[in-house]
Amino acid sequence: MADSKQFAEAVARRVNGPRRPRPLIEMQGIRKSYYIGQPNELEILHGIDLKVYPGEFVAIVGESGSGKSTLMNIIGVLDKPTQGTYILDGVNIHEARDNQLAAIRNQKIGFVFQTYNLIGRQSALKNVELPMLYAGVPGGERARRAKEWLTRVGMGERMRHQPNELSGGQKQRVAIARAMVNEPALILADEPTGALDSETSRVVMDLFHEMHERYHKTIVLITHNPALAQECQRVLTLKDGRIVDERKGGGARGAL
């Protein structure tokens, strides 16, 4: 039995090349329509096929109106596709109910938004603790891990500060710590440098590279900035709801 299984695997390796791990994101024929059944029914995504493997740093670029926000919402399981299958880390999203989707977002995805979206009137520490609160991590452990991640993003000195006492770059660093703290499989960043000047953007991008290289995180970066996308390993171009181009990124930093 064991021998025949090993043999079969060996054959498969020969045929398919080196065995690749299971994709983290596996999308097939994803379509998304709005106003379904109404005269102004509108299809935004026209069948997206996408595979992202663990440890990849992928950029999705596109003009505004290309459907990249819609795609991001679907990747981030904030929204369900109208058609097609989406399997995230082995979980079929179609079968998940609202509470399960919340748990998936909590456990598997770390969001970084253009507008930081830190909770006002709560310290950086409390903000970073938030995903763990919803994961049911006990209080002491929450504080310990939140401090650890704030220190890793260089915000160890300012963890008692409230968001309105922090600069944009500092806020985004807190947001990255918050995205990382539950050790998610995927970091989903939506225009993370969109509201920052180029110098701060550099710092934030370097932080993403660090998360990728040092902590081996899978990162999907959504941007309209081609130079920024060029830093990633793989660049997908979205246009009118279709992936029109896929190429390897340069990986060179300093695009900004």
């Binding site: 609202d98 509470n99 919340a102 748990a103 977002r105 969001f111 919803y134 918050r178 539950n182």
Partner: peptide
């Protein structure tokens, strides 16, 4: 919205 994105159930 942010809380929900971070995984807060309803």
């Amino acid at each position: 919205g942010t809380r929900k994105a971070l995984g807060a159930p309803s």
